[in-house]
């Protein structure tokens, strides 16, 4: 049994204009020692899905799932109190904005030590020792000095390292990194990714890496899951996904990569945006932006099997060509 198993997760928000499904029937698994990447443009429901697992969504959210098991425990049945014993200890999460994710009023040492005290009951001296060890682990020089510093004295990259140290404090089995490098300088991005992958290997953790950047996926992940407008549209191993994407959305994401674009001369982008509340089309959610969309796509989207990476597409791509595509395709309205 995998470390984390989520089946058919749906999250819907109460809003003033009615319910809004931010996550729609997403399934995923992540095992110990594995890196799963979730890719998709912003607004695809990647963060919301993970926040649902952590129990961090506001009360306006309704979470349903056929199963949500972590380490053999049913997270759906867990009360708030029992869940708090797991999150921050066995499942840890880091976020997109490292600078604002640290509390400006407390020192680095305090914020790292907090988890150690709450979850492991460590005493003062022990906490300090462990905090220094953790800061060393995430590559922060002069950790003794950093312990007494406040977040405003740290750079973005440094803050993210501190966030990682905090997340690793209790040796989690699963680390969720939600766009951990998006807010950082390009030069720092690679360092943080290397650090995360290195730590994942040395600790044997599961790592769920959320990103909107296929470049990040290429460098790190083993398994990739592509998400669009709250739905999982494709899932493959990273190598297979890059060589033969089955969903037109994946193909579009890949052709937006700078190194691929050179072949075409200029950087293509996917026209349009992820539909949000109110502008979700009927049928396939990607159809308004899809170059292969037909009239059928405005009515339904079928889930393919493993051969086509479970693509949610009526005409999944094979070697760049849509299969089962009608001879005389009428263009979608």
């Amino acid at each position: 049994m995998a470390l984390l198993e989520i089946e058919n997760l749906t999250v819907s928000f109460k809003t003033s204009s009615g319910p809004f499904k931010a996550v729609d029937g997403v399934s995923l698994t992540c095992d110990r020692g594995e890196i799963l990447s979730i890719v998709g443009e912003s607004g695809s429901g990647k963060s919301v899905a993970m926040l649902a697992l952590m129990g961090l969504l506001p009360w306006t959210a309704t979470v349903t799932a056929d199963a949500m098991r972590f380490d053999g425990r049913d997270m759906l049945q867990l009360g708030a109190k029992d869940r708090r014993k797991i999150i921050g200890k066995d499942i840890a999460m880091i976020f997109q904005e490292p600078m604002s994710s640290l509390n400006p009023c407390f020192t680095v040492g305090f914020q790292i030590g907090e988890s150690l005290r709450i979850h492991l009951g460590m005493g003062r001296a022990e906490r300090r020792e462990r905090a220094i060890e953790l800061l060393n682990l995430v590559g922060i020089p002069a950790p003794e000095k950093r312990l007494n510093q406040f977040p405003h004295q740290l750079s973005g990259g440094m803050s993210q390292r501190v966030m990682i140290a905090m997340a690793l404090a209790c040796d989690p089995k699963l680390l969720i990194a939600d766009e951990p490098t998006t807010a950082l300088d390009v030069t720092i991005q690679a360092q943080i990714l290397d650090l995360l992958v290195g730590l994942q290997e040395s600790h044997g953790m599961g790592l769920i890496l959320i990103t909107h950047d296929m470049g990040v996926v290429a460098e790190t992940a083993e398994r990739v899951q592509v998400q669009y407008a709250g739905q999982k549209v494709e899932q493959q191993n990273v190598r297979a996904l890059f060589s033969d994407p089955h969903h037109p959305y994946t193909q579009a994401l890949l052709s937006a990569l700078p190194e691929r674009a050179t072949r075409h001369g200029r950087l293509p982008s996917i026209p349009g945006v992820v539909p949000g509340q109110g502008d979700r089309p009927a049928g396939c959610l990607f159809s308004p932006r899809c170059q292969y969309a037909t009239e059928r796509c405005t009515r339904e989207a079928v889930r393919q099997d493993e051969e086509f990476g479970f693509a949610l597409c009526n005409y999944p791509l094979k070697d760049g060509q849509p299969t089962g595509y009608p001879e005389t395709a009428e263009a979608a309205p």
Binding site: M54, L56, R83, R84, K85, I86, I87, G88, K89, A92, M93, F95, E97, S100, S101, L102, N103, P104, E114, S115, I118, H119, M163, M166
Partner: peptide, 14 residues
């Protein structure tokens, strides 16, 4: 509504 409150929650604090 600040991010660091979400961080505190994600640490499993009461």
């Amino acid at each position: 509504g600040e991010d660091y409150v979400r961080t505190a929650k994600s640490k499993g604090l009461a």
